[in-house]
Nucleic acid binder design. Sequence first.
DNA 1: CCAAAAGTGTTTTCGTTACACCCATGG
DNA 2: CCATGGGTGTAACGAAAACACTTTTGG
Lengths: 249, 249
Amino acid sequence: MPPYDPSAFAPFAVTVDLVVLTVREHALCALAVRRGEPPFQGCWALPGGFVRPEEDLAEAAARELAEETGLRAQQSGDAGAAGKEAHLEQLATYGHPDRDPRMRVVSVAHLVLAPDLPAPRAGGDARSVRWAPVEELLGHAGQQAVPLAFDHAQILADGVERARSKIEYSSLATAFCPEEFTVGELRRVYEAVWGVALDPRNFHRKVTGTPGFLVPAGGTTTRQGGRPAQLFRAGGATVLNPPMLRPEV
Amino acid sequence: MPPYDPSAFAPFAVTVDLVVLTVREHALCALAVRRGEPPFQGCWALPGGFVRPEEDLAEAAARELAEETGLRAQQSGDAGAAGKEAHLEQLATYGHPDRDPRMRVVSVAHLVLAPDLPAPRAGGDARSVRWAPVEELLGHAGQQAVPLAFDHAQILADGVERARSKIEYSSLATAFCPEEFTVGELRRVYEAVWGVALDPRNFHRKVTGTPGFLVPAGGTTTRQGGRPAQLFRAGGATVLNPPMLRPEV
DNA sequence: CCAAAAGTGTTTTCGTTACACCCATGG
DNA sequence: CCATGGGTGTAACGAAAACACTTTTGG
């Protein structure tokens, strides 16, 4: 190993990029911002920005999230005192030498899971921001007009895959729900994220029978029509044992 | 987002650190190097080094691995043509502002799973290198004399946890075995990594009954004593469905 | 012959699946 | 009254745990 001489190396820029996921209208959606300058001017990209000199990586991600959406984030380890906060965790780091044509940029991607929000708030600047169905951004349906900038399609795909697998064995699906929710609403989260239909009866038995997953919130609601449904809150459990099973096909 | 002006930011150094795991004498062991200079002079640390300007992150990790051990690495996606190579995957990135007292260092940790080797080869320089049981490095038994340098105890703990959970639902445990191995040897890998005893009969039925996990290599061996055991090679399957179950207690 | 490890068969138990059925509300 | 979603009961199936038993080597 060479001696510790940082000046001997070309500078690296370190950024955070955010895969912010939510469920809207029965579809898994990601937050995208439109780039106002080259490269990839006019393309959609993931939100993100530079890590500041005195800032931890997770701090930088939470700051960027707040700037883009006004969302407060709850980092993986926290207890979470007041109000509903979005889930934030590190996803992976992308550092291919050519991923940004201007200079060497190493980006630490983070994954955020948030409940459905009224509308994304534009940040301090006036860039356009939107929730886009991930199917559309990744082009699995009718190809989209403009692909994502940089390697953001790969980052988004990795984030979606992480979310899909993590709701199997953890209680993270509740991060997509408002503070109080019904079993049916939670089921529709699983259906949207996995893109499958689940048996409502077995799903109900399963989630209500897993200790610590859900705790009754007291009231009922009829916002979905039909018989009033019990309201629940997320329980203390973080890992689900046994896990939720994702249907094969 | 501020305009793209890297010179406005203090420089970041980007390094890779390696959690290299193997199973020796029925214990999970990690590769540790002794630091010859401050800070943490004389402490054990994880192997690692700077990412070079034209190098991808995984390339840098593979290069450092070769320099420290002579091991060739097989990155997650590769097909792997000839010979037994170690498994390499990205673990997580550690970038707390104070993690290195000298300057801001962001380290992309990688996880390597390797079969038991004759002896670690010292690198180009003459630092001492050894395989240490992770129990000892993490101080879960009789506290060790010297703790790991920097935040390497956290990185090692994260790597061990990744390995423990990943052998549940993938065929990665075979990365700890030589090219040809018996069912009993594979079972002892699981037992060492998880730190539990498994029923040999049920284990045998389970792994031989999972399609694509193991393929017969033809011969038998008696190197463990007792009745000769069939030799197997790792099959093509990467995910195990249903998974191996880690006993509760 | 005995110890040790490999490998097979069988029973019990537990969780999922599939589906019949009832409940409570709005229109 | 009927459509809609909420919730419970139950039988069939499959995988895992526990363990009795046979096989094949070395000492």
